[in-house]
Structures are given as C-alpha cells and as structure tokens.
C-alpha cells in the first residue's frame, strides 16, 4: 500500500523514522550527548532510548593557570525517556561500533 512512501525521505522526520530500532547519536543542550537504540519518538523529538550511554562534557578553569580542563562524565542507563525540547540534533545509525 505505501511501501515506496515508507522508504523515501521526504521530510526531516522521515530520517528519524528510518532509524527506529537502530543505535543513534543525540546531541542535547548543556553539553550532553547520548548514544542508544531508538525505540520511540514523536514530532517533538521526545524519545525513548535503550542501552543508553550519556556523556556529559564540563569545562573547568584552573584557579592558578587559568587553563581549561575538559572533563567528560559517562554513565549508562537501560531505558531513558528524553524530553524533546533539549534535543539539538539526531544522527542516524552509527557506522562504527
């Protein structure tokens, strides 16, 4: 009925539809990144991800040398609902690992 429609990318959200059940990369506000399997999404980019790895990047300024110290904090969560208003970009299946 709609096989050719289903595979075509006509609007931006189609790209995300094709990433369903695939591991995606999500960049969020406040220097957060997620990698996880996309299980659900809606037009707001609210999402449910599985086997999620979150990386938070923080930059601290050294008191004496004024050097920037970049720290990344990683954690994993089995299932995560992500509210869409924090999403900056979504990238389809990761080719590597």
């Amino acid at each position: 009925m709609a096989t050719e429609e289903e595979s075509a990318v006509k609007e931006p959200l189609d790209l995300i539809r094709l990433s369903l059940d695939e591991r995606i990369y999500v960049k969020l506000r406040s220097d957060r990144e997620l990698r996880g399997k996309l299980h659900a999404y809606d037009q707001h980019l609210n999402m449910i991800l599985g086997d999620v790895e979150e990386v938070v990047t923080t930059v601290e300024i050294d008191d004496e040398t004024y050097e920037e110290i970049v720290r990344t904090t990683k954690r994993t969560v089995p299932f995560l609902f992500v509210r869409g208003d924090g999403v900056i970009l979504v990238s389809p299946p990761l080719r590597t690992a």
Binding site: D21, L28, H39, I48, G50, V77, P78, F79, L80, F81, V82, R83, G86
Partner: peptide, 12 residues
C-alpha cells in the same frame, strides 16, 4: 530532561 524507565515497563 530525562525519565529513567524501569526495564519491565518498556515493551519494545
């Protein structure tokens, strides 16, 4: 920002 979901509450 997030809601951490219980695995048994997720029917994929």
């Amino acid at each position: 920002r997030y809601v951490q979901l219980p695995p048994e509450g997720v029917d994929i």
